[in-house]
């Protein structure tokens, strides 16, 4: 039985990290209400399982992994969600196209993210959002480094294609 951690430590954790945790949850789920629920659930679980925090100086990866687990659990009831299909085959990407994509509307970005399967969306968010290293993303998701590289490359290609379309059509993909 784990006793609840001291209140001040949890409130410090909330004060310092609630914003990035919410942003991550929002980008993952694409819905403000669900993001708030996920954030709340993540901090409650963090409070209950404080002993599982391996690096107290860097709690964000732990909090993100809790958010992701909570999100995946909620997604089990929502299997009908349509996403683009990707092969897991590894191929080295060409990361940059000829034309720059310019400034991106955050809403357009979210729409492009929503199309991606979760196992492609999460590494992409972690990559851009908090500048996690490839190794950290691999650890976070429990997959091999090569798998992360492959998924990131494909997810970036998809993102670029979607965003270029949005930009070229003036916001109507």
């Amino acid at each position: 039985m784990t006793w609840p951690v001291g209140r001040s430590r949890v409130y410090d954790l909330v004060a310092e990290h609630y914003a990035p945790v919410y942003r991550f949850a929002y980008r993952l789920s694409g819905k403000p209400d669900l993001a708030a629920d996920l954030t709340q659930e993540a901090f409650c679980r963090a409070q209950e399982n404080w002993g599982q925090l391996r690096d107290p100086d860097r709690p964000l990866p732990w909090l993100f992994s809790i958010v992701r687990n909570c999100y995946l659990r909620k997604c089990r009831d929502d299997r009908a969600r349509k996403t683009v299909a990707f092969s897991e085959e590894f191929d080295w990407p060409e990361p940059v196209a000829d034309e720059p994509i310019g400034e991106i509307d955050p809403c357009d970005l979210q729409k492009a993210l929503d199309d991606l399967p979760e196992n492609y969306r999460t590494p992409l968010i972690l990559f851009y959002f908090e500048e996690f290293s490839y190794r950290e993303i691999a650890d976070q998701m429990g997959v091999a480094l090569g798998t992360v590289m492959s998924r990131l490359a494909r997810a970036k290609q998809h993102l670029r294609k979607r965003l270029e379309t949005v930009i070229s059509t003036g916001g109507a993909p």
Binding site: A15, R23, Q40, F43, P106, L109, Y128
Partner: peptide, 30 residues
């Protein structure tokens, strides 16, 4: 391009009352 995507990725408006709601919920849960 990466900087542009990263800026857009982080551009999420966090609800003003979220921190207070979290604190209240944690107190109840505790």
């Amino acid at each position: 391009d990466d900087d542009s995507i990263a800026r857009a990725m982080r551009a999420v408006v966090v609800p003003v009352r979220l921190q207070a709601e979290l604190a209240s919920q944690l107190a109840r849960t505790s």
